[in-house]
């Protein structure tokens, strides 16, 4: 199996008095088509790790390889291209733009790839159908429920058919029922063959994932695979 992602001895230190070591020598390999949960208490470095995997930030030291390619020497512009074509982000706070409809928000996922507006909308409509919001396309975010907003955000993350979907506590702002719906959707993405890395502080939710990485104080505490869940998910 090819590695979708590999990070080697990554250290991230935030300058300050005293400096904060958010990641302390983290190494990790995620294969294509894997679904990985990252768990750990608040402040353990989960978001920092996701940002570094997502090329939004650079490690203080160590290597980040995407599809086997080192990113360390890439320019900011090249990293932007990587994000626009290979990565899809889902955030806890959704980050939808208020001034536009769900459809246009999703179409923004293709904005920086230079796709023509009509084509963007067409693919956005398909992505919204896929997350079950075909009937909400022309609603503005403020007219949608929290769960619906997060599904719009997921549609935006997958509209560019990314190699890796990165989700940072996607259910953190949702009630239980909406959270379950969003998780079902994420699981569907995985079963369709997408590589998914999902941060959660919800242990119960994490235990339903085939692979869990536990973090504490910037270090990987444990990395467990659950063969049973994996086969269950493969069977479904």
């Amino acid at each position: 199996m090819t590695a979708a992602l590999e990070i080697v001895d990554v250290v991230k230190t935030y300058p300050g008095e005293p400096p904060v070591v958010a990641l302390d020598t983290v190494s990790l390999r995620v294969d294509q088509g894997e679904m990985v949960g990252i768990v750990g208490p608040s402040g353990s470095g989960k978001t920092t790790l996701l940002h570094i995997i997502g090329t939004l930030d650079r490690p203080t030291s160590g290597e980040v390889l995407l599809a086997g390619v080192a990113t360390a020497n890439m320019s900011d512009r090249q990293l932007s291209a990587v994000r626009s074509q290979l990565l899809g982000f889902v955030f806890q706070q959704f980050f939808l733009l208020d001034g536009m409809t769900a459809l246009d928000n999703v179409a923004n996922g293709l904005l920086y790839r230079g796709v023509a507006p009509s084509q963007r909308r067409k693919e956005a409509a398909e992505a919204l159908e896929r997350v079950g919001l075909g009937n909400r396309m022309h609603h503005v975010p403020s007219k949608l429920s929290g769960g619906e907003r997060q599904r719009v955000a997921i549609a935006r993350a997958i509209v560019n058919r990314p190699a890796i979907v990165l989700a940072d506590e996607p259910t953190g702002n949702l009630d239980t029922k909406s959270g379950v719906a969003v998780m079902d959707l994420v699981r569907d993405l995985h079963s369709e063959g997408n590589t998914v890395i999902i941060i959660t502080h919800d242990r119960e939710l994490a235990s339903s994932l085939p692979r869990r990485i536990s973090m504490r104080d910037g270090r990987v505490e444990s990395d467990e695979r659950d063969v049973q869940v994996e086969t269950e998910m493969a069977a479904s």
Binding site: V8, E63, L65, L66, A67, G68, V69, A70, T71, M74, R77, Q78, S80, A81, V82, R83, S84, Q85, L86, L111, Y112, R113, G114, A116, P117
Partner: peptide, 23 residues
């Protein structure tokens, strides 16, 4: 560990159409 140093990971650059700049 050996790393294949491919010059580009993303096949094309990020691109924002002129019409989209206005939008």
């Amino acid at each position: 560990m050996t790393v294949a140093v491919a010059p580009t990971l993303a096949p094309t650059r990020s691109r924002l159409r002129p019409g989209d700049v206005l939008r």
